[in-house]
Design a protein around this nucleic acid. Structure first.
Length: 563
RNA sequence: UGAGGCGUCGCCAAGCGGUAAGGCACUGGAUUUUGGAUCCAGCAUACGCAGGUUCGAAUCCUGCCGCCUCAGCCA
């Protein structure tokens, strides 16, 4: 944080206040409670940064707790990926790794307590009947005929539920609250349901599983959480959170605080929808670089620091918000600009022959590794008579404002020489430009001229015989832009899938040093963008690079506006 | 026609009765061996709307309007 005093968000204001009043004896404990039913995504990073961030800022700790109360949806694959992602983001739960299932025995005891106190009952209405009895948003519900069972009968029935004597769906344990409550969550919510499924941690020990509202508040209280931070949609559940804790002899009563989750334009964050993209094969997996998952972001080359900074910049509030994806990209560029090694790579090669350069001569030219980082040093790159430049860097018939290479014009080759185009050789049949012939000025070695001559354009290049071949994958948004006024809900989100979200370039030519490129390191392909070695598909003799994000491209913008 | 939230620039978001921070985006210009980066400038007489209180209101009061969440034996 800078010296400019940043005002506290509303949650940090609450924590500050609580500390001042010595609430919780000055203790701060938060938790990040993912359900292991999918991979973590950018949206979760806001919650992770918030919970771990607040804990560390206020001298507290943050627990990691898997909310694993539904054995039908959860999987060990997810508990592993979630831990990996949180560590990668830069946070540490130390030895405080918990599972809601750790507390199943305790929860069962609390359920018994509610029954004994006449505050819970076993209900034999089926799901449809329960829905019917619950009433609607505007009509109050009516009481279940099983609501008045005796404590003894409830105890016995609940015991038999636990022993597996009843089939799934035949009965549930319900809290006895108020069927006329204007808050539907308070109309005798379900506490336990029967699920004869194997749980990834408790195996077959249980065939009854607690519902979220019951399990979550008890887990929080058991761990001694002080501030239970969750997203806006749980606001309506807060009275129930408080009700359970008020009825039970729990060690403490955490405060639930809700904030608006993070959404981005042109992406989806719903785990259900992301799962569908994976299952239907629209992406290569949860870690496809186009996915908003942390695994995908990491593979694409996004850095943890950039994501943390983004979370800091978007702030924390209660209004539903959709952040412009451009802000994410800004944060990535801002971070990578400081860190990335500059290299030259020609993505769509165009052969250039420098006619006056000696045939077998090769020069080793010096190039700076990162002008933003004086400690990054320099490297040598080979230069020879035949080079490749970007197809985009040559126009036979240049438009207004174009200051790259074209017949009769001179440009600078970065770190090398000025070259001037003399002629173009085209395919007689297709008219496609096959090669461009130039002459170089030996007096401009390094890219400087002593006569005050100026060139407007500077191109990147590679020496044709020295360069290595690589595959480069360019990514675009997974979803098309939502047009103004377009009803998002009326159409299936799959209809908005961008058919061109992946462009694969197979014959790219890179400067030879990139043979040594390693995963986990970001490179700036000069004038193009930030790239990294693909951690899954890249092979030593067949390198694959991912474009993390392009550089800002003012010329592309100008050109587009001219059309 | 229920309850709970939220409405400040295109997008986030400060502000908490004393006369609208900041970031992104956008637009100019400087600079530049990346049309990158950097720098400088511009960008809400205005805070959903309408009344009211006050010397003074985005901030307080009243009434409207709009959007979001809730009717899983999901979380």
């Amino acid at each position: 944080m800078s010296e400019v005093s940043k005002s506290l968000d509303f949650i940090r204001t609450i924590v500050t206040e609580d500390l001042k009043n010595n609430k919780n004896n000055g203790r701060v404990m938060t938790r990040f409670p993912p359900e292991p039913n999918g991979y973590l995504h950018l949206g979760h990073s806001k919650s992770i940064c918030l919970n771990f961030g607040i804990a560390s800022e206020f001298g507290g700790v943050c627990n990691l707790r898997f909310d694993d109360t539904n054995p039908c949806k959860e999987d060990i694959e997810y508990v592993e990926s979630i831990q990996e992602d949180i560590k990668w983001l830069g946070f540490d739960w130390e030895d405080r790794l918990y599972y809601a299932s750790d507390y199943f025995d305790q929860m069962y005891q609390y359920a018994l307590q509610l029954i004994k106190d006449g505050k819970a009952y076993v209900c034999n209405l089926n799901a449809e009947e329960i829905r019917h009895y619950r009433g609607t948003l505007t009509e109050s519900g009516k009481e279940s005929p099983y609501r008045t069972r005796s404590i003894e009968e409830n105890l016995s029935l609940f015991e038999r539920m636990k022993r597996g004597e009843f089939e799934e769906g035949t009965c549930v344990l319900r809290a006895k609250i108020d069927m006329t409550s204007p808050n539907i969550n308070m109309r005798d919510p379900t506490i336990y349901r029967i699920r004869k499924a194997e749980h990834h941690r408790t195996g077959n020990k249980w065939c009854i599983y607690p519902m979220y509202d019951f399990a979550h508040c008890i887990s929080d209280a058991t761990e001694g959480i002080t501030h239970s931070i969750c997203t806006l949609e749980f606001e309506i559940n807060r009275p129930l959170y408080d009700w359970y804790l008020d009825q039970l002899p729990v060690p403490c009563h955490p405060q639930q605080i809700e904030f608006a989750k993070l959404n981005f334009t042109r992406t989806i964050m719903s785990k259900r929808k992301l799962l569908r993209l994976v299952k239907e094969g629209h992406v290569s997996g949860w870690n496809d670089p186009r996915m908003p998952t942390l695994a995908g972001a990491r593979r694409r080359g996004y850095t943890a620091e950039a994501i943390r900074n983004l979370c800091d910049m978007v702030g924390v509030a209660k209004s539903n918000s959709v952040v412009d994806i451009a802000l994410l990209e800004h944060c990535i560029r801002e971070d990578l600009n400081k860190k990335a090694l500059r290299v030259m790579a020609v993505l769509k090669p165009l052969k250039v022959i420098i006619d006056n350069y000696p045939e077998n001569q090769v020069e080793e030219l010096e190039a700076v590794n990162n002008p933003e980082d004086p400690n990054s040093g320099t490297r040598k790159i080979p230069f020879s008579r035949i080079i490749y430049i970007e197809q985009d860097d040559f126009r036979e018939d240049p438009p207004k404002g174009y200051f790259r290479l074209s017949p009769g014009r001179e440009i600078r080759l970065k770190h090398a020489y000025y070259i001037k185009c003399n002629s173009v050789i085209k395919d007689e049949l297709t008219g496609e430009i096959k090669e461009v012939h130039c002459t170089y000025d030996p007096e401009t070695k390094g890219g400087w001229s002593t006569d005050g001559r100026k060139v407007k354009g500077t191109s990147h290049w590679v020496s044709a015989p020295h360069s290595i071949e690589a595959e480069v994958r360019l990514y675009d948004y997974l979803f098309l832009d939502v047009k103004a006024g377009e009803e998002e809900e009326t159409s299936d989100f799959m209809e908005r899938l961008n058919p061109n979200s992946l462009e694969i370039l197979k014959k790219c030519r890179l400067e030879p040093g990139l043979k040594e490129a390693k995963t986990g390191i970001s490179y700036q392909f000069l004038r193009q963008g930030y790239f990294c070695v693909d951690s899954v598909d890249s092979l030593p003799d067949k390198p694959v690079f991912n474009r993390t994000v392009s550089l800002r491209d003012t010329w592309a913008k100008i050109e587009k506006s001219q059309k």
